[in-house]
């Protein structure tokens, strides 16, 4: 198929892609086309405001006040559980190895924000990028809360190997996808620095679903990063990492460099 044929074949699916109506294989194939088709990227960008109208078009209802109270209670309970869980694990001394692993992970999860943002050379950034970095700081603020007071939790962590694809070239990258008490994060080291004005972005791909954008990240000076994956992951779900323009993308625009299947 020549380039024009390929474009017209995939362009038919552009709207379905935009509203999440492609199955997962089609989504990947479409994203692959998108990576080298300026025209489709342009059209998607032009239609994005219309897609955002969809959730805004529903009848606006006032949530019951009890919902907010329950949410705040759930969060308070979450903090409680983590603190007392840590204390219990410390006292009972069960599964020393698991506990140490948990402690190591929580240290990683508590890396101060400024450390995580070290890869941003903030003063040199254009204003828009600096604003994005500040916005990132706000978002990551949720991620860096201490989650267990340093003692680990009773829930063992799961480690999933991450594969560097051919697109990663010869980079000696090492990475792991880790679930600690049900919260997933990606530990990456020795990834080459993204190009100027580019960032890395994680994606979650599930069977029968469109690819979901996940965390946008940059590397610390040593080429490492700890990346929280906010989505809940089930067996068979895939986490991918691509390089994207600063700020990230709504859909992957380059081939994945890293891939992990839960």
């Amino acid at each position: 198929m020549n380039v024009a044929d390929e474009h017209s074949r995939w362009n038919e699916d552009l709207a379905a892609f935009a509203v999440g109506a492609l199955d997962s294989e089609e989504t990947v194939a479409f994203a692959d086309h998108l990576a080298h088709c300026d025209q489709c990227r342009g059209e998607l960008h032009r239609l994005a405001p219309a897609v955002e109208l969809l959730p805004a078009s529903v009848e606006q209802l006032a949530p019951p006040p009890a919902l907010k109270s329950r949410l705040l209670e759930a969060i308070a309970a979450d903090q409680e559980t983590n603190v007392s869980g840590a204390a219990a694990a410390g006292q009972a001394g069960v599964g020393g190895r698991v506990r140490r692993a948990g402690a190591a992970t929580s240290r990683a999860a508590r890396v101060p924000l400024r450390e995580r943002l070290r890869g941003w050379h903030v003063p040199a950034l254009p204003a828009a990028l600096a604003a994005a970095a500040l916005a990132a700081a706000f978002a990551i603020g949720f991620a860096v809360r201490g989650d267990d007071g340093g003692g680990g939790t009773a829930v063992p962590r799961t480690t999933v190997p991450v594969v560097a694809t051919a697109a990663a070239g010869r980079a000696p990258v090492r990475a792991q996808l880790i679930s600690d008490a049900g919260n997933w994060h990606l530990d990456v080291t020795r990834l080459p620095r993204a190009g100027f004005g580019r960032v890395y972005q994680a994606w979650v791909m599930r069977r029968g679903r469109d690819v979901e954008p996940s965390t946008v990240f940059v590397l610390a000076r040593d080429g490492s990063s700890t990346v929280a994956i906010p989505q809940s992951l089930a067996q068979g779900d895939q986490v991918l990492v691509t390089e994207e323009p600063a700020g990230g993308s709504a859909a992957p625009t380059t081939r994945p460099l890293l891939s992990a299947t839960v």
Partner: peptide, 8 residues
């Protein structure tokens, strides 16, 4: 899990 949104 710490949300991260696409600020740009």
């Amino acid at each position: 899990s710490g949300g991260r949104y696409d600020a740009m």
